[in-house]
Design a binder for these strands. Structure first.
Lengths: 119, 119
DNA sequence: ATTACTGTACTATATACCTAACACAGTAGT
DNA sequence: ACTACTGTGTTAGGTATATAGTACAGTAAT
């Protein structure tokens, strides 16, 4: 489950988590998202917040909502790869920029990754 | 200068920036920080916010304030290296965790860094 | 003492975020 | 029609963030 980070709005953290689930293929067989109320219970947050999550995701054209029916992942074959690339690039840019500000060179960063991470 | 990120409180962004400046050696010759009012002008923010920045930095024992005099970097030789390591580790952990969630392996990440970044 | 800086504290105002508690409209199965 | 789900909208209250404006106390140089 999501461990919340107080430095960022809840709804944005949930959005990021949903995107990860999309990339992970959680909705490849069934494109229907949990209802706003279900999602609220699952994440332990308020239904108003999950409604906002779906509203934002719909603005980003990642899903569409039908009143009385549900919210569904858009049918777009390229979407998952695009999303994965976009999110990774954003993470990478931010990470490299911050590490550069701390005085690390690219080689030092790579060494640190080889040593440190478990993945 | 700092380009602000709406996803995080201003005062935390300024704190991170000051820490980078400490690591960068900006205060190695003169340990006195700009006054709260000067810093506010420099960053284009409110003096109350810069006062909060120094208050938090003092809580983290990175500086101390003398009423009527100013705010000064603590005299601690190990501090810069410790700070650099702490911040880098935090960045690295967060980055690797997020990239792992997106399905990237360590080797893929390293390749991406070798290709992408400019540093 | 006066002046001009410091840090610090306070009130007020505005906004974003989050929760709570509803209400209403649309859809589908019975 | 009834029931039980959907999405959606509204009002209210609480907290955190940031600004604006003002005030006061401590320090140092003149």
């Amino acid at each position: 489950m999501l461990t919340y980070d107080n430095n960022q709005p809840l709804y944005k953290q949930v959005i990021a988590d949903i995107k990860k689930r999309i990339i992970n293929g959680d909705f490849s067989h069934n494109p229907q998202f949990p209802s706003t109320r279900e999602l609220a219970i699952a994440y332990g947050i308020n239904p108003n917040t999950t409604a906002r999550v779906y509203r934002e995701l719909e603005l980003q054209q990642l899903c569409y909502s039908k009143k009385g029916v549900g919210t569904f992942l858009v049918n777009n074959g390229q979407l998952v790869n695009q999303l994965k690339k976009t999110m990774a690039d954003k993470l990478l840019d931010s990470f490299l920029s911050n590490m550069s500000d701390l005085g690390f060179t690219k080689n030092e960063i790579i060494k640190k990754i080889e040593k440190g991470g478990k993945t």
